[in-house]
């Protein structure tokens, strides 16, 4: 499972303040702790209230790269923020994200090719998030086809079915789990699959329990990657155990430690 740590996001109080005040120590601590807890990559998001997102994104990348050398996921809806960021990323970059709208694909797919980055494709478009499985599949196929046309390797594409809060759209979570498997039959090689996990529990009172339950179900549905909070130890234990049950690592009594010593 490819784990993208979600904690460096201006939407969160601590990171938001650090970005505003350019407090490197907070961001660098978040980067190191997420890496130690098992993150394979870090998501960087300036947050919705950033006055100068290009500047903030540059600062985040430089700040994080001073302490860790790992893939960075540039999380922005603005193409120029992503491109300015891509210029600075030393390790591998992940573009987070494009929708299935052609205006977005026209810009972001070539950028991913130019900078040899991975790309996250959300199955939504101008009409919003689909409420059914077929529409999600159709949008995913559109993104895959566009990548193939432009010569972007589909194995570097992560399709995100867009997880909705379970307390708002309770019928959607089951559909998302089903469609995760179906994304795999769109093409050969298949695109990878990813979810932004925390969305599932937005606004609920049992956030961590809901997150880890959904994660283990999604792993059983062939999920390849997730954007999540790696500092949630029970969540990480659930992830490791789910992979164990699917025979993705060899059991031993200390399998949790063994995974963390990878």
């Amino acid at each position: 499972m490819f784990i993208i740590g979600e904690l460096i996001n201006g939407m969160y109080k601590e990171a938001g303040r650090a970005i505003r005040e350019k407090d490197k120590s907070v961001i660098q601590r978040l980067a190191k702790r997420q890496k130690e807890a098992g993150a394979d990559a870090l998501d960087l998001n300036c947050g919705p209230v950033s006055k100068d997102p290009v500047l903030d994104m540059r600062w985040l990348i430089e700040t994080v790269q001073e302490v860790v050398d790992m893939p960075l996921s540039l999380d922005s809806t603005k193409a120029n923020v992503i491109e300015e960021g891509l210029k600075l990323v030393k390790n591998k970059a992940i573009i987070n994200s494009t929708s299935a709208d052609s205006e977005k694909l026209e810009i972001l797919v070539p950028l991913a090719i130019k900078y040899n980055a991975s790309l996250i494709g959300l199955t939504l478009d101008k009409n919003g998030v689909p409420q059914d499985k077929d529409r999600r599949l159709e949008l995913a196929a559109r993104i895959v086809a566009d990548c193939q046309e432009k010569g972007f390797p589909v194995e570097n594409l992560y399709i995100d079915p867009v997880v909705l809060p379970v307390n708002v759209a309770q019928n959607q979570a089951g559909l998302v789990l089903e469609v995760l498997k179906e994304f795999k039959i769109i093409s050969t090689p298949a695109p990878k699959t990813i979810v932004g996990l925390s969305n599932i529990s937005q606004g609920t009172t049992k956030r961590r329990l809901i997150n880890r339950t959904f994660l283990s179900m999604a792993i059983a549905a062939d999920l390849d990657a997730a954007i999540l909070d790696p500092l949630d130890e029970e969540l990480m234990n659930t992830l490791i155990t789910s992979e164990l049950i699917l025979n993705k690592q060899i059991y031993c009594d200390s399998y949790l430690d063994a995974y963390r010593k990878r």
């Binding site: 060899i250 059991y251 009594d253 063994a258």
Partner: peptide, 13 residues
């Protein structure tokens, strides 16, 4: 036993 082989390596390390 591959499980014990792995466990023992962890214990030693």
């Amino acid at each position: 036993d591959v499980n014990i082989a792995k466990q023992l390596n962890i214990l030693i390390s």
